[in-house]
Write a protein that binds this DNA or RNA. Structure first.
Ligand SMILES: [Mn+2]
Ligand SMILES: [Mn+2]
Ligand SMILES: [Zn+2]
Ligand SMILES: [Zn+2]
Lengths: 142, 142
DNA sequence: TCTTCGCTTAGAACCATTCTTATTTAGGAA
DNA sequence: TTCCTAAATAAGAATGGTTCTAAGCGAAGA
């Protein structure tokens, strides 16, 4: 399970017929298991030491490719796109104080596409929920 | 009710001690009752004919002021900030095809801040729900 | 090994938003 | 009504995130 998780993104790239370049492998590795929902810039900063010539375009291209093949998903939060390696249906809790974004698992038994008809004729494909508030650490600090 | 709605934003500006400039009144008027969740650019384009010298800065300043005094709310969608004159708690349905954003009223009886504890220690202040799917018009066209 | 098309890079371009500064003006005071 | 001044506007520069472009590079199949 841990091993298969480590290779999930690599396998996805391979299955899609995309080349396994060192940059892509490093980006996939950096994103795998990362629960902080990093931005492109953050991943770039993390990888720059190892790939001093890496370009932002490569970061965006790879993340875009991974998104297209469902290896990750994109979140629009705080004026920037954030990348999430967790592609199972789940929600997010955002701290208004420190900006941290944490995963929130669905209530067990809650179908990912339950929720009653929002608008007549609107076909719901999925629901994104964002809990806004104060995280445990920030609440304690105050 | 219609009249009071027409003046809601103007009253809010007045109560906050902000000056009632022609630009602000026009922006408030343009936003009032607008259910399309327009961007700053869209409002600018709509007002440019009447105020040929209006600056984007004025649009952003006014919308920022209105947001601060709870005259409207901001939504982050599709890579741009959208402005919503409806400040009552409600959700949104976004069409993946045409990008239209429609209001979705809360289920009657659904407290705006119900929903069980998402994370231990996280204090939920509000929940934002986005229904993603295909709107009635786009579904029919296909 | 060779070849080729996909990939990476650097930097320009683009777009939304914010900032800066000079000028104008709303609205209270006289 | 006129005057005064803090607040607001306009123009454009600056910023920050993201995408595009063009030239060289290299992964991987033959
Ligand atoms: Mn997540
Ligand atoms: Mn709305
Ligand atoms: Zn926090
Ligand atoms: Zn549609």
């Amino acid at each position: 399970m841990v091993l298969s998780e480590e290779h999930r993104l690599v396998d996805a790239l391979k299955r899609a017929g995309l080349k396994l370049t060192p940059q892509r492998l490093a980006i996939a590795e950096a994103l795998t298991g990362d629960e902080t929902h990093p931005t492109a810039q953050e991943l770039y900063a993390r990888l720059k030491p190892r790939f001093s010539s890496m370009s932002m375009a490569t970061i965006y291209n790879t993340l875009g490719a991974l998104t297209k093949i469902r290896g990750c998903r994109e979140l629009e939060m705080g004026g920037a796109t954030r990348f999430d390696p967790n592609v199972t249906p789940h929600d997010h809790a955002v701290c208004e104080r420190c900006g941290a974004i944490r995963d929130v698992e669905l209530e067990s038994g809650e179908a990912p596409d339950s929720e009653p008809c929002p608008l007549p004729g609107f076909q719901v494909e999925r629901i994104e929920r964002v809990y806004r508030g104060v995280c445990a650490q920030c609440a304690e600090a105050a």
